[in-house]
Every structure is written in C-alpha cells, then in structure tokens.
C-alpha cells in the first residue's frame, strides 16, 4: 500500500524547556485506522496538536505531499469531549452543521435549511435523529461524542484525527462510533486516533504507533503490538497481547 500520511521528525518542547516529543516519524497508508498508544503523559495528544500545527513544534506532517496546515479545512479533528462547553446554547443539529463551515465562503451564511438533507443523513448515521433539537448539555457523554463524530463526518475530510474518542462513554456509543469509523475507512478515509484501552487494540486498529516521548514502534498491529514494545512503553511486562491485556 502507498503511504499517504507522512510524519517526519516531530519535536515539541514546552516553554519550561521540558521536551515532550522527540523526533517522532512514521508513515501510514490510506484507508486504514491507526491507534496512537502509550502511557499517560507520553505525548499522544501533543502529537496530534503538533501535526495540526496548533502548538509550536519542529518537523512536519504531510498528507498526500501537502502540509496539514495548508489543507486544514479538509482534516477532521475530534477533540476530547471533556473540552467541550456543554452549557453553550447550541443544539445537536447546529453542532453538526458547524462541520459545514469550512466549505462555506467568507460572508456565506450557515443556513440549516440549505443543508437539511445532509444534516438529517448525518443524524441518522450517528443514531441521534430524535435528539436533533436537544441542547448538547442534555446529552450523555456517549451521545455527545457521537455528535462530535457527526460534525466531523459532515465535513467530508480525507484525514480524521481523534483524541481519545472512547474516554468515558458507554458501550453502545463506542460500538456506534467504531461502526462509523469502519464505514469511513471503507470509503478510503485515513483515520488516526489516540487510544488508551489496550484490550481493544488488536480488534480496532490496522496499525499502531507506540510512543513515550519518542517513537517506540510503528507499523501493522500484528507485528507491532508485541510484549517487547509494550514493555518498553509502559515499563511493565504485558502478556496475552493478541487476546487482550
């Protein structure tokens, strides 16, 4: 398979001179789901932020030969739901419609009626049709995460980056999100997500990237999700790798 995403020499250093990421490089093929795993504080979320040029960093990330910063509007990014302001006066349908904003020109208005069909289809995909007019603060964690995925879907991105999408959500929402991500993968989308539940790694991901301030290993899950690599990342002997940890 031809690699479409290239990350080369990503370095991140905080203002207090603490190095968070050091020389992280990897490549990924199109139409795959890849998990970024590593212990707490390993720099997983920081890696996504650096790839999107949201924080000062060294190195670069390119998609199909173009810097991610240059094609920012074509990249879907789903942050952790804990960072979402749940009291903001916005409904489920409106939140999803925000994914349309990157396609609109300056001064072009975001009219829900103009994109109603698209919004309805997305609501159905994330199984949230009956909640369309509900304020987001009235949703459970899993429902809110599905809405955020819906907002990303309607953007029609070629590359999707997700930061711990399964953190604190119910099993039904997790299954729904994985079904959606697998559908997107079948459409040729490239998906990269920060993940912490090691038990699901073999079933969820085609590839994994293991980091702990630097790259430990990157590649197909079967070859990379090994006891030796996990021991190097987590500092503990982790057994029964393919069947769950």
């Amino acid at each position: 398979m031809i690699n479409i995403l290239t990350v080369q020499g990503i370095n991140v250093t905080y203002q207090n001179q603490k190095r968070v990421l050091s020389d992280v490089s990897f490549s990924l093929p199109a139409g795959t789901i890849t998990g970024i795993i590593g212990p707490n504080g390993a720099g997983k979320s920081t890696l996504l932020n650096a790839m999107l040029s949201m924080i000062p960093h060294g190195g670069y990330a390119k998609f199909n030969g173009t810097s991610l910063a240059e094609i920012a509007k074509k990249i879907g990014y789903v942050q952790q739901t804990s960072q979402v302001d749940r009291h903001f006066p916005i409904t489920v349908a409106e939140t999803i419609s925000l994914g349309i904003v990157p396609r609109l020109k300056l001064f072009q208005r975001l009219g829900r009626n103009k994109h109603q069909e698209e919004i309805d289809w997305t609501l159905a995909q994330i199984e949230m049709t009956e909640f369309a007019n509900r304020q987001i603060g009235q949703l459970s964690g899993g429902q809110l995460q599905r809405v955020m995925i819906g907002r990303c879907m309607i953007q029609h991105p070629e590359l999707i980056l997700l930061d711990e999408p399964f953190a604190g959500i119910d099993a039904h929402s997790e299954a729904t999100i994985m079904r959606i991500l697998n559908d997107l993968k079948a459409d040729g989308k490239t998906i990269l997500m920060v993940h912490h539940d090691l038990a699901k790694v073999p079933t969820y991901f085609d590839n994994i990237i293991i980091i702990k301030e630097k790259l430990i290993a990157a590649g197909p899950t079967k070859e990379t999700f090994t006891a030796q690599n996990m021991n190097q990342a987590y500092g503990l002997p982790i057994v029964n790798m393919q069947g769950g940890v």
């Binding site: 999107l52 949201m54 910063a69 920012a72 509007k73 990249i75 990014y77 942050q79 960072q83 979402v84 302001d85 903001f88 916005i90 939140t95 925000l98 904003v101 990157p102 975001l110 907002r151």
Partner: peptide, 14 residues
Amino acid sequence: LLTSFDPTMAKALG
C-alpha cells in the same frame, strides 16, 4: 459562533 463554541476546532481548521 465557531470560535466561541469550540476555539480548538476552529484553530484546527485554520
């Protein structure tokens, strides 16, 4: 609306 509700997403979108 976007920068008020979700400045992180707005930043990610450039």
